[in-house]
């Protein structure tokens, strides 16, 4: 019995180690999900500041028409592994209480939300800086592709700069 309870304890300790989390959401990120996520932090009373970035699909003008949606695809396994590395790195760099990353897959129409990054800390500076760094690294390092769907039924592959 002692051995078993010790084994259970070891398992509990191992579970505390952070592992890759799913960041992908099918379709747009609903505003309700964002407000619910904010509300979930009400019990964490050591937080003094949140920083939120929301990416929204823009109706860019293209040759022959206007963008009506972006269709996102990803190399999911690699993206989740990479997102985990970025997450660990940013956690070790800033004194954060919480960090949440959500990115859309599939079709997201103009005006809808495709990226939600949420950081929380005791004081605002860490939350703001960490949020900015996360957004930059997500756009630069995650194997995700957006195809802009134009209203004349053509399409253009986006390229982050």
């Amino acid at each position: 019995m002692i051995i078993i309870s010790q084994k259970l304890k070891n398992m509990e300790n191992q579970e505390k180690k952070r592992t890759p989390k799913n960041i992908f959401v099918n379709g747009p990120i609903a505003p309700e999900k964002i407000s619910k996520s904010i509300a979930n932090h009400a019990t964490k009373t050591d937080i003094g500041g949140h920083s939120i970035f929301l990416g929204q699909v823009r109706a860019d003008e293209k040759e022959g028409g206007t963008v009506k949606a972006i269709e996102y695809t990803a190399y999911e396994d690699m993206a989740l592994q990479k997102a985990f590395e970025i997450r660990e790195d940013v956690f070790s760099k800033y004194p954060l209480t919480c960090m949440h990353i959500y990115h859309s897959l599939g079709e997201v129409k103009t005006g809808e939300i495709c990226l939600f990054v949420f950081t929380s800390s005791k004081h605002r500076k860490a939350a703001i800086d960490a949020c900015e760094e996360l957004v930059e690294r997500i756009k630069k390092d995650l194997p995700i592709w957006g195809k802009e769907l134009v209203d004349n039924d053509s399409s253009v592959w986006k390229e982050n700069t």
Binding site: Y75, W145, W157, E159
Partner: peptide, 10 residues
């Protein structure tokens, strides 16, 4: 082996 064109997430 994966062939990865320039990323365009976010």
């Amino acid at each position: 082996v994966a062939l990865l064109p320039p990323f365009s997430g976010g």
